[in-house]
Design a protein around this nucleic acid. Structure first.
Length: 298
DNA sequence: CATATGTCCTGAGAGC
DNA sequence: TGCTCTCAGGACATAT
């Protein structure tokens, strides 16, 4: 389920494509129905052929390929989409192929088992209105004050609000759970009841957890779907402390059990002992956070 | 306006 | 063994 760390890993994995020219954009023969693509493959090919790739950016969970005429190809991996320069896990779910000029990395593939991903080519002004203005500040760029300003008047639970891409872009279900655990905040806390220190801890942990996950090249869950551009699994799944660990002992307090609840039709995992609604926290909790920080930087 | 719910999709795993 | 059912959660459309 690519979230910010996985998409950032994809971006880094295909950076070699920058500076090359697009030779063709095609849909490989595959058994699946086509993914949502706009405009059509024929139009994509026509508009991109011969263009130089000026940059490969990321905004939240979206990968943005910037062409020399300032058109932008936006790839949304959603649940199972990945970008590859190596051979794909199978050829049955290849959705798009981009052939590039030059030696070395001269082919990019978008592979997506479930096919919920999308590929869209925007002109510069379309990109501004459809992507730039609709998405919140990237989770790695947002300040504590910006985060607070966006969410502190909301009545939603903090876990649900963190998934709102128009507030802050890049956090999904998995990292929301890990961030709130590290921040010691109960995921059911309403945004408008969070204290200043809680907002600060949440903001700190957004940066620390996401950066740590990027260092580990993202999370490859038990279904093995997520891969980096070389088709290698990530490593951050071994660092998860609450996600998909219901019933296991809490890695911090050891006594409590990780609980699974459902919020907005999505699983939330947390430790009821370590994650409190109250803004007050004990000395023990401070120890937890300083320990947490050094662990994250390891 | 803010917030909540339904929908798409495929394959893994559970239960019988 | 093979069938049916449920679930995973990204983003958006529609409903409240």
């Amino acid at each position: 389920m690519p979230e910010l760390p996985e998409v950032e890993t994809m971006r880094r994995g295909v950076l070699d494509a920058a500076g090359r020219r697009v030779e063709s954009v095609t849909v490989p023969p595959c058994a699946c129905r086509p993914i949502a693509m706009s405009p059509s493959q024929r139009q994509l090919d026509r508009r991109m052929k011969g263009r130089r790739i000026d940059g490969i950016d990321r905004r939240g969970k979206r990968l943005v390929i910037v062409l020399d005429n300032q058109d932008r190809l936006v790839i949304e991996p959603r649940m199972t989409g990945i970008l590859l320069v190596a051979d794909p896990p199978d050829v049955d779910h290849l959705r798009l192929q981009m052939d590039l000029s030059g030696a070395g990395v001269n082919r990019l593939w978008f592979w997506d088992r479930r096919g919920l991903g999308t590929v869209t080519l925007y002109r510069e002004d379309e990109y501004r209105t459809a992507i730039d203005q609709r998405l919140g500040v990237d989770a790695l760029q947002i300040s504590t004050e910006q985060l607070r300003q966006k969410l502190s008047s909301s009545r939603r639970c903090i876990k649900v609000a963190l998934l709102d891409q128009s507030a802050v872009a890049g956090i999904g279900n998995l990292y929301a759970a890990e961030i709130l655990f590290a921040a010691g905040v109960d995921p059911r806390t309403r945004c408008d009841r969070l204290t200043g220190p809680q907002w600060r801890r949440i903001h700190d942990q957004i940066g620390l957890i996401l950066e740590d996950a990027i260092r580990h090249e993202g999370s490859t869950l038990s279904d093995g779907t997520y891969r980096n551009a070389l088709n290698d699994p990530g490593g951050y799944q071994n660092c998860h402390r609450v996600y998909d660990r219901a019933g296991q002992a809490c890695p911090r307090c050891r006594d409590g059990e990780i609980r699974r609840i459902v919020q907005a039709q999505r699983s939330t995992f947390f430790c009821p002992r370590c994650q409190r609604r109250s803004g007050l926290h004990s000395t023990l909790r401070e120890d937890f956070h300083s320990h947490d920080r050094s662990a994250s930087l390891r």
